[in-house]
Design a protein around this nucleic acid. Sequence first.
DNA 1: CAAATAGTGTCTCTAAGACAATATCAC
DNA 2: GTGATATTGTCTTAGAGACACTATTTG
Lengths: 270, 270
Amino acid sequence: MQSEKEFLSEYRLDKYERPSVTADIVALMIRSTQSDNYRLNSDNKLSVLLIKRGGHPFKDHWALPGGFMVPGETVEECALRETKEETNVSPVSIMPVGVFSKPGRDPRGWIISNAFVSIISEESVDQKGQDDAADAQWFDVEFEQNENGDYSLQLGCGDVRLNALLEKNEEKFGRTSFTVKDSGGLAFDHAEIIAAALSMLRNDAKNFDVVFDFLPEKFTLSALQRVQETIMNISILPANFRRKISAYVIETDEYTQGAGHRPAKLYKRK
Amino acid sequence: MQSEKEFLSEYRLDKYERPSVTADIVALMIRSTQSDNYRLNSDNKLSVLLIKRGGHPFKDHWALPGGFMVPGETVEECALRETKEETNVSPVSIMPVGVFSKPGRDPRGWIISNAFVSIISEESVDQKGQDDAADAQWFDVEFEQNENGDYSLQLGCGDVRLNALLEKNEEKFGRTSFTVKDSGGLAFDHAEIIAAALSMLRNDAKNFDVVFDFLPEKFTLSALQRVQETIMNISILPANFRRKISAYVIETDEYTQGAGHRPAKLYKRK
DNA sequence: CAAATAGTGTCTCTAAGACAATATCAC
DNA sequence: GTGATATTGTCTTAGAGACACTATTTG
């Protein structure tokens, strides 16, 4: 009879074929665009971080940051490490989106991807800059259902336009999965991953858990409202938003200044 | 300059170390227990399917069904295949819970686990029987927060009692993760996986998406109510439950019989 | 008839949406 | 002052929870 110790000393994991495992990250930010009217508050756009692939496969195509797991780290640590290495952006927290393991999804062979979503405040990106990652760019995101029921995912950055088309699969446990009909030039199955991440984000922005992560520590209630409206692609009356959010925030005694209209009190997350 | 075709023909995935990847499945059923009073409706208990490990490591400990991925299948297919092989139970649908990849979680080496939850109707289990899987057993589940804030996960099957103790980590996107303080005899980090699956299930039972999967095609509204109460560990007034659920069901013209009280109309999912 | 579940009606309270009205700043 | 956002208050409506009451079966 073999003891557990004996068993383990003889056990060889490499007897069997193993997949390579990657972590890919859907890093999202809300970018504010200044208007020419000094009175207007800034407009907001949801952006996703993509990198232009320098090597095969999908050379010169845009892809999510990510890479292979190495021994001794968790999938989450891998996602953070690769994002930092490839884009010089350091997300503070990430949340799992799902596993993507369809055979053939990567032409290099048997590679499965664990996808994560991460939310980043514009403030923290501005501070760090992106000097040493010229091939990493923030793309404006639009994601909506069109007339015939399919979903269109439109990514834009300067002159670059990527238009992917997806079909909605079943909805399980509040998570929706998609099938790519047209990748729009995105590498691998990354259109599918981005769609799953956005769908999850919208579903969960209702609890306000997510919205705070897009903003610095102190923020105005209207900035917070614009974040939620941008994520969920809806419009909320300010009075009603304030009532709902009041349970989740604490007021400070600071105010905004020089906005061309009444100053707003700054709040912190409760 | 190398073409993509040339690149791929020379590319070797096995240049780098790779983890082994498993799929583990938290298969849940609601079991009805008959009372000795002919008038009483059956009481319900949530049960999880475990197998007694026949080999090292964790020999003779109870574990979730699951096993290693093989080439050409998705993680989901792997979860279904392993559950069928090890327990002779065939789940119809599964939903991802998360990835568990902490170094050291498996004494055999670098092994990461993709966990899924699956919901099974008692009817379908009764039909198939479990003859050829004597080491697979359904354990009654109780999962609740105790006085000092920790969570206790209690599994029982006959004389076997497994009592695990967990600490709640952060809650992200409606998903809660846990840290095991005492595995209670469960193999690997499976207490952590079960806790994450149950927490997810409770959170999502609110939409009624989940509850129907526990029942056969036609059911009474009180049976449906008991399912929801069992999952969420709450108590609902029948009148209010009927009002809420009415939008999700269609009535048939069939009735239950011989129950020792007024017959109930059978409904179908809308 | 008694005991149990099945099923209906209604009251109250809360939360959400709509909207009116006031406050305060930069120019 | 003007035009914009900030902030407060209130009306209406939808939904959840509590509870009283009726209906129908088996032993």
